[in-house]
């Protein structure tokens, strides 16, 4: 189990992580979700004792990382796949890591085999593609057969095949009873892999719940209505307390079920051309929830955060 208590990290006058407390349960995949710049990587570096927290603590199985004996045997981590010397071979890279934690050299070949890099084991790591580097990083994380695994944005920049591979791989690790803590800025990705979610924005905890709960909360369904008599329908909708957003060719209605809108239309003798439930995408929902806590807005994201419904109409 990983436990963060009031974890805070300050760089100059910028708070990267702000009084963050959460727990990661054993034997499950927990997603660590937040927009870019939310403090995910900083938090993970603090978990591994690489960065010193300004205040607060983070413990793994009750111990601080620096107190772990042969830490690679307890915690495996892939924070950045590029943390390999480009002129060192994959095998040499894993060999020194194994040696440092008294892990048998046989294990090096085992993990190379698990991630499918046996054939290129003696090639220099600098020549690896991103997908291969990622696999090498995962091999390093698995080296000590650890109970706890940390991955920082493992699917970033990977092709669909690589993404699928990583996804299956994490599920397999959880099935083996390991604790997997994986960060991402993509809710849709996490919805597929993680059972629990820790969501942060601007270094603060936004929510900790199961993925199901979060997704249900995040995706408020809306209904799209097209009609030549919107002028009559709209006041009726307003009366029942629906949230109505005009779009190019109709209305987006939230807070009222589709059936109810149909009944209202009937009562007011309104012809409907379209009555379509819209499942908001996870991404938009995520932006709605973390909207205020995105560190660096692009204009498009600002618009989306301010007018989620309008944006939904465009993309769906």
């Amino acid at each position: 189990m990983i436990e963060a208590q009031s974890l805070t990290k300050r760089y100059g006058d910028k708070l990267a992580v702000d009084d963050l407390s959460f727990t990661v349960e054993s034997g499950r995949v927990t997603g660590f979700l937040g927009p870019n710049g939310a403090g995910k990587s900083t938090t993970m570096r603090m978990m591994l004792g690489l960065d010193n927290p300004t205040s607060g603590t983070v413990t793994i199985g009750g111990k601080r990382y620096s107190e772990l004996h042969h830490p690679l045997r307890t915690v495996g981590a892939l924070l950045d796949a590029r943390w390999v010397h480009p002129n060192r071979s994959a095998r040499a890279h894993l060999s020194w890591m194994a040696k440092s934690n008294k892990i048998s050299p046989k294990r090096v070949d085992e993990v190379l085999d698990i991630v499918g890099l046996s054939e290129v084991a003696s090639k220099r790591a600098g020549g690896f593609s991103l997908g291969m580097s990622q696999r090498l990083g995962i091999a390093g994380a698995l080296l000590g057969d650890p109970e706890v695994l940390l991955f920082d944005e493992p699917v970033n920049g990977l092709d669909p095949e690589g993404i699928l591979w990583i996804r299956k791989f994490m599920q397999r690790l959880a099935d083996e009873g390991r604790t997997v803590f994986v960060s991402s800025h993509l809710l849709s990705e996490m919805a597929l892999t993680a059972t629990d979610l820790v969501v942060i924005g601007k270094g603060k905890l936004i929510s900790q719940s199961t993925t199901e709960e979060f997704v249900a909360r995040a995706t408020d369904s809306t209904v799209k209505v097209r009609s030549p008599h919107l002028d009559r329908l709209r006041p009726a909708l307003d009366r029942v307390g629906a949230t109505v957003t005009p779009t190019d060719d109709g209305l987006l209605v939230a807070g009222v079920a589709g059936e109810k809108i149909g009944e209202l239309a009937m009562e007011n003798q309104v012809t409907l051309h379209e009555l379509a439930p819209q499942q908001g995408s996870l991404e938009q929902a995520f932006m709605q929830i973390t909207g205020d806590s995105v560190e660096y807005h692009a204009d498009l994201e600002t618009e989306a955060a301010e007018q989620p419904a309008g944006h939904a109409a465009v993309t769906n």
């Binding site: 004792g49 990382y65 620096s66 772990l68 830490p71 690679l72 924070l79 390999v84 010397h85 440092s100």
Partner: peptide
């Protein structure tokens, strides 16, 4: 310096926190 340049110093400190 190459350890810092390529980030392997972090892997080193991860493997050997001392």
């Amino acid at each position: 310096t190459t350890e810092y340049r390529f980030g392997t110093i972090r892997t080193t400190f991860q493997a050997v926190p001392n």
